[in-house]
């Protein structure tokens, strides 16, 4: 280990770290919104749309992000649809993450106990009120663990953006290795950088899971 190499590469890794965080942030927000919409469509069994959502979830869950990105970035421009590399990355991660989030939220909504729903109906809540005051608050609480797992998963998946030459963490490290051959130092930095993002985040999310667990109280 040559610590001056590590020190000199710090600014580059810092830049990569922020880009990874920024792309992950937009990706996770987008995936969360898409996932929520999809899970609502499935929960309320909206005709037609429901079939579309099922097809989308299966397609997205059963194909690798790498090939999704290649198709977006290299395939689509040939039929006239063109995005920048970063846009492709974010679209790809939303396409991938949306289905995982949808599954997570659906699992939470399905976990709301029948007695809760029947009690709501018994006191005369309308369908909308039932959703607003009984199903969503409890269902979303129940899906926090799945959401947390997805957040970590999606941040790690952004490492695949390196194939589109987006200068996020992994790409930064691979670039530096290609230029200076200080393999050990740069790979060490890369692992540390991911640990800096993911370890505090996973502790935070575990704390959040515990915090919202009272939502299931009374089962």
């Amino acid at each position: 280990m040559d610590w001056t190499v590590v020190q000199n590469s710090l600014p580059m890794f810092e830049k990569g770290l922020w880009l990874t965080l920024r792309l992950s942030f937009f990706g996770i927000i987008g995936a969360g919104v898409l996932g929520l919409i999809c899970s609502f469509i499935q929960y309320f069994k909206v005709p037609v749309l429901r079939k579309l959502v099922t097809a989308y979830v299966e397609l997205s869950r059963n194909t690798p992000l790498l090939i999704q990105l290649f198709f977006l970035f290299y395939g689509l421009p040939q039929v006239g649809i063109k995005f920048s590399a970063e846009a492709c990355g974010i679209i790809g991660i939303i396409f991938l993450g949306g289905s995982y989030m949808a599954e997570g939220f659906s699992g939470g909504l399905a976990g709301v106990s029948k007695t809760q729903i029947e009690s709501g109906l018994a006191i005369g809540l309308s369908r909308f009120q039932l959703a607003r005051y009984v199903i969503f608050p409890q269902g979303l609480m129940l899906s926090v663990p799945a959401f947390a797992a997805n957040v970590i998963f999606l941040i790690k998946e952004t490492s695949i953006f390196t194939v589109l030459a987006i200068p996020e963490l992994t790409n930064t490290a691979l670039d530096l290795i290609g230029m200076y051959y200080n393999t050990n130092e740069y790979l060490f930095m890369l692992v540390v950088a991911y640990a800096i993002i993911l370890i505090p985040l996973s502790i935070l999310l575990t704390w959040l899971e515990k915090k919202v667990r009272y939502g299931t109280f009374g089962n």
Partner: peptide
């Protein structure tokens, strides 16, 4: 193995 992305594991 959970924290390090698979690409990084491969390169390591």
């Amino acid at each position: 193995f959970r924290i390090v992305p698979t690409i990084v594991l491969l390169f390591l």
